[in-house]
């Protein structure tokens, strides 16, 4: 049977307003307000949806991999509820704050340990770091081709067929498996799991592996060092235009008049 791995990152909710967050004293972490649960990185949800669409179409076994430290299991179990067959958590203190290279090393080692997959799916970029590197890193380390920015992924008899987003259109790209594909939001949102599946998923005990289980040596893995996070001063003084709709329209037109030549 076709095998698919989906790499999923747990992130702080990217849609929550920053005013509610604080930057930790070490400058290297963002502290969410108490009670804000982490979420699955949005493009990784799209990647899982792509995998489930393939599963619907041709049948496949879908394995979800998630790396981190102190992972929120109930959040990640959402992937099982949505239709993934297996959840493997890669948890280790060493996995906290890894850069893209380190992350790709851990995920590639896991994929190797599991004997490889026909398709590896990732989100196009993480919703917190926005780096967009891990997918291509995994492919490079596994020595398999990578196709990015998929809006549709299909499996034919001989190849994986991807519709890849271009700035003003799309291209159809084919590669024989094993292949890595990164998903964009155009693939569609992750399906809503039935309540029964949600309850069943919470009972599953996921496999948990650490650095020693994988045999990865992360001592020299860092290529990009975070020095600190900061919030740049960016607020602009906004001049408000008030009044009735017609007065507002007039006011905006006055502004436009001086700016459109």
């Amino acid at each position: 049977m076709l095998t698919i791995a989906v790499c999923v990152k747990q992130v702080t909710d990217p849609e929550a307003p920053l005013s509610l967050f604080a930057i930790a004293a070490d400058g290297r972490h963002l502290v969410p307000p108490p009670g804000t649960p982490p979420v699955l990185s949005t493009f990784d949800e799209n990647a899982l949806e792509a995998a489930l669409k393939i599963k619907d179409a041709v049948g496949s076994r879908v394995t979800v991999l998630s790396m981190g430290n102190k992972l929120a299991k109930p959040v990640l179990k959402k992937t099982l509820a949505a239709g993934a067959d297996e959840l493997i958590l890669l948890e280790d203190e060493q996995f906290e704050d890894l850069d893209s290279n380190g992350t790709a090393m851990v995920l590639a080692a896991t994929i190797d340990k599991l004997g490889g997959f026909d398709i590896v799916l990732c989100g196009r970029q993480a919703a917190d770091t926005d780096a967009g590197q891990v997918g291509m890193g995994i492919a490079a380390k596994l020595g398999i081709p990578a196709v990015t920015l998929a809006r549709k992924v299909e499996v034919t008899d001989t190849s994986v067929r991807v519709e890849r987003i271009l700035p003003y259109g799309h291209e159809v790209v084919e590669a024989a498996p094993p292949v890595l594909v990164t998903a964009s939001n155009e693939i569609g949102e992750l399906r809503f799991p039935p309540v029964k599946a949600v309850i069943a998923a919470q009972k599953v005990q996921p496999t948990v592996w650490g650095a020693a289980d994988l045999g990865v040596d992360l001592a020299r893995s860092t290529r990009a060092n975070l020095v600190k996070f900061f919030v740049p001063a960016r607020d602009i003084l906004c001049e408000m235009i008030g009044g009735s709709p017609q007065e507002i329209a007039n006011g905006i037109t006055e502004v436009l008049k001086t700016r459109i030549v």
Partner: peptide, 29 residues
């Protein structure tokens, strides 16, 4: 939050403002 990033702002329902604005701009530009 857009009002912290915009140079000019109007608190209004666009459905009321945009038709008037379009008319005005057609006449102007």
């Amino acid at each position: 939050p857009i009002f912290r990033r915009a140079h000019y702002g109007a608190v209004a329902d666009w459905r009321e403002v945009v038709p008037a604005l379009t008319q005005k701009c057609r006449a102007m530009f």
